[in-house]
Structures are given as C-alpha cells and as structure tokens.
C-alpha cells in the first residue's frame, strides 16, 4: 500500500504543472525510496525524469512497488481543487484501479477527498547512463526562463555557446537576431543568484525553443537550474527538489 503525505500540496501541484504540457500519460512508479516518473513527449525529442524522494514527504510508506498509470491532464484538474498550503496525502492499494488524494486544510477541519481512475500505460523505459558532460552550468532558474522566452520571440532555435568565462545564448530569425551573454559570478549574500560554469570542453549546441518553453515551466520548483551539455548529445536541464529532482533531457538540433 502507498501512503504519502505532503506537508504542502503546492509541491505536487508545481510538479504536475511543470510536466503536463510535455507528457500526458505516464506511470508514477512508487517504491520505498519515493516516486519516480520517466516519460518521453509525443515527438520523441524531450524526456522527462522525475524523482520525488521519500524525504520530501512528511509521512511516507510504500511496502511494495506500485505503478500508478496517470493521465496528467485529469490529475492536474483534481490537484487544483486543493489549497496550496493543504496537507496532501496520496493513497493507493497494492494493485490499484484508482489513487485517492486527500486534502486537509490546516486552518479548519475541512477534508476533501478525490479519486482518480488509473490507466494501463505501456511505456518503455530508456536507460540513461551517467556521463561526463562537456560543460555544467548553474544559474538562476528565473533568468534562464526570461532569456528563453525573450529569444523565442525571434527564432525557433536556441544556440548555447559555453566557454570558460562566458555563457552565450543566441537566436537567429527572419525578423532579427538576439543574444544574451552571462559571466560566471558568485553572490555570497544571495547564493541562488550565482552563476557557475564548469568546463571540460567548449560547447556549441542548438535546441528547439518550443521544448525549452516546456522545460522552463519547472522554474517554480527551484531557484537554480543546472544545465549539463555535451556537443552532439542530449542536454540535461535539472531542477533540484529538497530530495529528488525534475530533469528534462532534450535532444539537440544539428546542421544537416
């Protein structure tokens, strides 16, 4: 049986809102370690990988592995019924047909209970090996969101160039071009404002901005985004959770 209680419903709300436009049907695999999701978008370009570690929950038990096949659009509708500050408990039997969501208002005795019918979802699992990336950058997630939104007004593609002392984001379009250059900086008072670059090799990679527009929906999950890039392989965009992560692997574009 699964019983996982979030101190605040807002975390799961944010997670679901962050991925529901990238993938619709996905299996939430629950184990003693927490809840994981892996799913690829319909165009097979973007892979979503989520781990909500058991330490995120104020109470968590899952005796054996349970898979919850969820339609995220329906899940999002139910999850919006609860208040952000409510306790949220997910409950499912060992071979469940449905998952129950219990919202408890902390300021009153109100308890709201919803159940979502589950689906059989046949999704393959891709093996992603840990690898050394050519470059790892860490920067404020909100800045990355703004840069990508600004440059998406010009182009469908975002070029990212990384050297040891700068990160350059570029977009070239029919109506004009744009670029934003960032330099590494350490902010001691506000570490979440820092920008760091670890470089093994200089990077020059191009990505579809429509996918990045979905990725930056994770911005509210973390003050910082970690971007790991190697030339000619998928880049990893990561929002860290208190325990776990939301990762997006995005396949690059190449000059043909």
């Amino acid at each position: 049986m699964l019983e996982g209680k979030f101190e605040e419903a807002s975390l799961l709300k944010k997670v679901v809102e962050s991925i529901k436009d990238s993938v619709q049907l996905c299996n939430f695999v629950c184990s003693e370690h927490g809840i994981t999701v892996q799913a690829v978008d319909d165009s097979r370009v973007l892979l979503v990988s989520l781990l909500i570690g058991n330490e995120v929950f104020s109470d968590y038990r899952c005796d054996r592995n349970i898979t919850l096949g969820v339609d995220l659009k329906s899940f999002a509708k139910i999850i919006r019924c609860g208040g952000n500050d409510d306790y949220l408990t997910l409950i499912a039997e060992d071979s469940p047909d449905s998952v129950t969501l219990v919202f408890e208002d902390k300021n009153s005795d109100r308890i709201s209970e919803y159940s979502l019918k589950l689906m059989e979802i046949d999704n393959e699992f891709l093996k992603i090996d840990d690898m050394d990336y050519d470059s790892v950058i860490k920067m404020p997630s909100i800045d990355f969101q703004k840069i990508c939104r600004d440059l998406s007004t010009l182009s469908e593609s975002l070029q990212i160039l990384i050297t040891k002392d700068s990160i350059k984001f570029m977009a070239e379009g029919e109506t004009g071009n744009g670029s934003v250059i960032l330099k590494p900086r350490t902010d001691i008072d506000k570490p979440e404002q820092s920008i760091t670059v670890k470089l093994n090799n200089a990077v020059n990679s191009t990505f579809g901005l429509k996918y990045i527009a979905d990725i930056v929906k994770g911005t509210s999950l973390s003050n910082q985004i970690v971007i790991k890039i190697s030339n000619r392989t998928p880049a990893l965009f990561e929002y860290k959770l208190q325990s776990g992560y939301l990762r997006f692997y995005l396949a690059p574009k190449f000059e043909d």
């Binding site: 393959e124 093996k127 998928p234 692997y249 396949a251 574009k253």
Partner: peptide, 14 residues
C-alpha cells in the same frame, strides 16, 4: 537545413 534529433538516437530502451 537544421535537423531535430530524437531521444532514441542516444538512449536505448529496456
């Protein structure tokens, strides 16, 4: 032109 690659070209399923 510029070509969009897919995730499966890099990772294998099991």
């Amino acid at each position: 032109g510029i070509k969009q690659t897919q995730i499966e070209e890099y990772y294998y399923s099991f």
